[in-house]
């Protein structure tokens, strides 16, 4: 009788639609308050190409949240958890790939590292099989420090003007040191994330106006880059140092190793369909 009961249960689970597995892919933007990330942050060709890499390309989600907030804020990770949970539940996703860019990698690491913070997190953690973290700001950026030099009024004003947001504050180098040592997993000497967290590292910036490649969502102001590079290592994507991008998880590849024409990926280019990045990711997931 007991044995039969177990077989019955097994049969129920087997025929239940809930037992069917499904893969999915979600695109998670970086700093900013997005309402149309598909067009305003990524671009359509980038997203539509990458989602062809999963068995059912219709199982995709482009996340829109307020990542101007601290990563743990309900408007940031809470919003992300809500959208991922709804996506996982509605599509019965049990193998989820996350494509993140920049600070989106930190928000995802927050969820993966803090399962007891929110009752929605455990199911998300269990569903995530892979994170492709494009240019993640895992170690912060000195440029965030630079725009946060100041006191109370400057900070408040920064809010009004849209810079110096909490997310930018959080991405200061010593702030990320703190969070990496206390609340975020995946960096050296810390617990692993229990899923692959593969970084795509942007190592250089082409900005010369005579180089057509620099116009793939690239920089136009050589002088500006020449200035800001003073805050960054020689290896950077113009916004993040390579050491920051590779601080968490493992490095999947550094731009020039795989991109078309061995072109570097600037921080703006690495969220667009530049130099075959989109097809490289499609073929990987």
């Amino acid at each position: 009788m007991k044995h039969n009961y177990k077989l019955l249960l097994l049969g129920l689970f087997t025929v239940s639609p809930f037992a069917q597995s499904a893969t999915g892919v979600a695109f998670i933007h970086g700093t900013g308050d997005q309402s149309n990330a598909l067009n305003d942050y990524w671009n359509q060709n980038f997203v539509n190409t990458i989602r062809q890499g999963i068995s059912n390309p219709n199982n995709y989600l482009v996340v829109n949240c307020d990542f101007d907030q601290y990563m743990w804020d309900n408007a940031a990770s809470g919003c992300l958890a809500g959208q991922l949970t709804q996506f996982i539940d509605s599509k019965n996703i049990d193998s989820l790939t996350l494509i993140t860019h920049s600070n989106g990698g930190n928000v995802v690491r927050w969820i993966l590292s803090n399962p007891t913070w929110d009752s929605r997190y455990p199911a998300i953690i269990n569903a995530v099989d892979q994170v492709v973290a494009i240019a993640p700001s895992s170690g912060g950026t000195p440029l965030a420090d630079a725009v946060n030099q100041g006191s109370v009024f400057e900070t408040t004003l920064g809010w009004l003007l849209g810079y110096g947001s909490d997310a930018v504050k959080q991405q200061q180098v010593s702030w990320m040191n703190y969070y990496n040592s206390t609340w975020l997993n995946g960096t050296q000497g810390r617990p692993s994330l229990n899923t692959t967290f593969e970084a795509v590292v942007g190592s250089d910036v082409d900005s010369a106006i005579w180089d057509g490649d620099s116009y793939c969502a690239g920089y136009q102001y050589q002088v500006a880059l020449e200035t800001t590079q003073n805050w960054l290592d020689d290896c950077s994507d113009g916004f993040l140092e390579c050491s920051s991008q590779s601080a968490a998880g493992t490095v999947w590849f550094t731009d020039k190793q795989r991109t078309r024409g061995s072109e570097p990926l600037s921080h703006q280019q690495s969220r667009r369909d530049c130099f075959n990045l989109h097809t490289i990711i499609r073929d990987h997931i």
């Binding site: 950026t141 630079a146 003007l161 920089y219 102001y221 500006a224 200035t227 800001t228 921080h267």
Partner: peptide, 13 residues
Amino acid sequence: ADPQALATAGLTD
């Protein structure tokens, strides 16, 4: 470098 140019390179203040 002026503010507009620096903003494109990540210094947005």
